[in-house]
Structure formats: structure tokens, C-alpha cells
């Protein structure tokens, strides 16, 4: 064999050994002791690093979970109950199932309802637009339509509807992490639970302007007339600063408010399509749509009232 080859092999081997020894000692010297459960917990988590739990990422959350004496107050909104159950198993703890949260955009200022009053020509970001002025419509509370929430969503659950100019939440994809809600400079996105069969009743407006002003800017605005508050049998609706709000924890989805609202600002979702009912009797099909149990409860409340 050529001596060049031999020398090469010898040198390479020597270098390899020296490096291996150095690496071994360095690894020993800088070794970080870590709870092995952290890796196990992290493996259970979705790995989206969305920050919905309030931690810097899944690894950080796993550290918190392992360190916490009681994990009941910590929750991964993305993985939901299944993941928390797994984590609890790893840590030998118990968790109570929590309801799934979804984002809801509380504005119905579509291009038709809320005509544009000027033409925004800056960087297409709600944050920039909100810092600049009251917006390109008459309403200074509603959606700015630049899609900061869409950009913030890591799960592709929000998209802009080109026809309305408003974001639409795909509830099947929404994990309730809240990234959109904190990205919205107008704070019109709310996280809430859904009723049975994913039903919900929402005031689709965030305007705190007086009735006339709000109405002038947007046909679908809540004018703070408080009719819904009066009609609600469960006291779920409060009107503050000319704006009605339905507490989703109290709402029993009776949909009475939907029929009562004079501007149509209250909407119901995922209720069965009503048959083409005559406009004269809109209340009847609504009544039918409500589950029997709720109906009974409504009746009971009405009697006591």
C-alpha cells in the first residue's frame, strides 16, 4: 500500500480519537440535569408552539406542567381535553374536562352594512391602521379588515371573506388559542364556548357609540336599545356603553333576543335552517328550534316572573 494512504488513515484516526475525547469531556462538563418527565409531557403536547397556554412554547409549557403541584389551572387550548388527559396520566394527576373555546368576530360591518367613507392606502395591517385613525368606515369600533387575525392564526382557522371584508372563523379548525383576539387592535374577537350542537347566539357588534351614531355608520350596529336585555329570560344580556353583550355562560340559546333586535345585530349560528316562514310570524320557527328542555325552562321563568 502507498504510504500516503497509510499516513492519511493514521492522521484521520488520531484526529477522530482526540475529538471524541474532547467532546466527551465537554459534554460531561456542560451537562444539564433535567426532569425526564418534561420530555414525556412535551411529547403529548401538540407542538404548535402557538402560545395559547400563555407560555413561550410547548417546551416551556411542559416545564410549567411538570413544575406545577396541581395542573388543574393549566390548559392547552389546542390539544384540548384529550391532550390534558394524557399529560395528567404522565404526571399521575387528574384533570377536569374543560369546554372547547372558539373565537368569534363580533362585527357584522359588511361592505353593504357599513359603507366605506375613505380609502386606506397604507400598509395593510390593522395595527398600523388603528394607530393612524378611526378607520375607513364611519364606525370607529368595528373590524378594520386588514386581517391581522388571519396572519396571527397558526391553524388556518381564520380567513378573510372577500365579499363581506370580514374575517370568518372555521370553528372546526379553531383551537381557541386566542392569538387572533390579542392580535386584534379593536378587541372585537372574543373567545367563548359553544352550546350543544355547536350552537351560539352572539351580538355581532362592538360599537360603543350612541344609537344614532352607530346606526348611521352601520346598518347592522347594536344601538344599545336594551330590548334584548328585557326579553332575555335568563339575565344573560347586559347593555353597557350602548352595547349589548350576551354572557355565553348564562345564555340558554332560546334565541328570543334574535327576534327582538331591531337592527338584526344579534345572530344565531348552527341552528337548523328555518323553513321559508312567512315574515309575519318569525317567532314561531324560532320557538320550535329551541330544545325542549330550554323551552320548559323558559316557560318556568315566565311563570315566576
Amino acid at each position: 500500500m502507498d504510504s500516503t494512504i497509510l499516513t492519511t488513515i493514521a492522521i484521520l484516526t488520531l484526529v477522530g480519537i482526540v475529538v471524541a475525547v474532547v467532546l466527551y469531556f465537554v459534554a460531561q462538563k456542560f451537562k444539564v440535569e433535567e426532569d425526564e418527565r418534561i420530555d414525556k409531557v412535551e411529547a403529548c403536547l401538540p407542538g404548535a408552539n402557538c402560545g395559547g397556554c400563555g407560555s413561550a412554547g410547548c417546551r416551556d409549557f411542559a416545564c410549567k406542567l411538570v413544575a406545577a403541584p396541581e395542573i388543574g389551572s393549566l390548559f392547552c387550548p389546542v390539544g384540548g381535553n384529550d391532550v390534558m388527559q394524557k399529560v395528567a396520566q404522565v404526571l399521575g394527576q387528574e384533570v377536569v374536562a374543560q369546554k372547547k373555546m372558539v373565537a368569534v368576530v363580533r362585527c357584522n360591518g359588511t361592505c353593504e352594512n357599513r359603507p366605506k367613507t375613505n380609502d386606506y392606502d397604507g400598509y395593510a395591517s390593522c395595527k398600523v391602521k388603528a394607530a393612524l385613525y378611526s378607520g375607513d368606515t364611519g364606525c370607529r369600533w368595528g373590524c378594520l379588515g386588514c386581517g391581522d387575525c388571519v396572519a396571527a392564526c397558526k391553524f388556518g382557522a381564520i380567513s378573510m371573506d372577500a365579499a363581506t371584508g370580514l374575517p370568518v372563523v372555521d370553528e372546526s379548525k379553531c383551537t381557541g388559542c386566542g392569538a387572533c383576539a390579542s392580535a386584534c387592535p379593536r378587541t372585537i374577537i372574543e373567545l367563548r364556548t359553544l352550546g350543544p350542537k355547536d350552537r351560539k347566539v352572539v351580538v355581532l357588534c362592538s360599537s360603543k357609540d350612541k344609537g344614532a351614531v352607530a346606526r348611521k355608520a352601520c346598518k347592522a350596529a347594536c344601538i344599545g336599545c336594551a330590548k334584548c336585555q328585557k326579553v332575555c329570560p335568563f339575565g344573560a344580556i347586559t347593555v353597557e356603553n350602548n352595547l349589548a353583550y350576551i354572557d355565553f355562560n348564562l345564555c340558554k340559546l332560546c334565541t328570543k333576543c334574535v327576534a327582538e333586535c331591531p337592527t338584526g345585530a344579534i345572530h344565531k349560528f348552527n341552528f337548523p335552517e328555518k323553513p321559508a316562514a312567512p315574515a309575519a310570524a318569525p317567532a314561531a320557527p324560532v320557538e320550535k328550534a329551541a330544545p325542549a328542555a330550554v323551552k320548559a325552562e323558559v316557560k318556568a321563568k315566565e311563570e315566576t316572573a
Binding site: G122, Y123, S125, K127, V128, A131
Partner: peptide, 12 residues
Amino acid sequence: IPLLDVIRVNKA
């Protein structure tokens, strides 16, 4: 590129 638009809000 809307440099200042972006810088302004992030500066704040």
C-alpha cells in the same frame, strides 16, 4: 416597502 408604517407601530 411601507417601512415607516411598520417601524412606527413597532417602535411604539
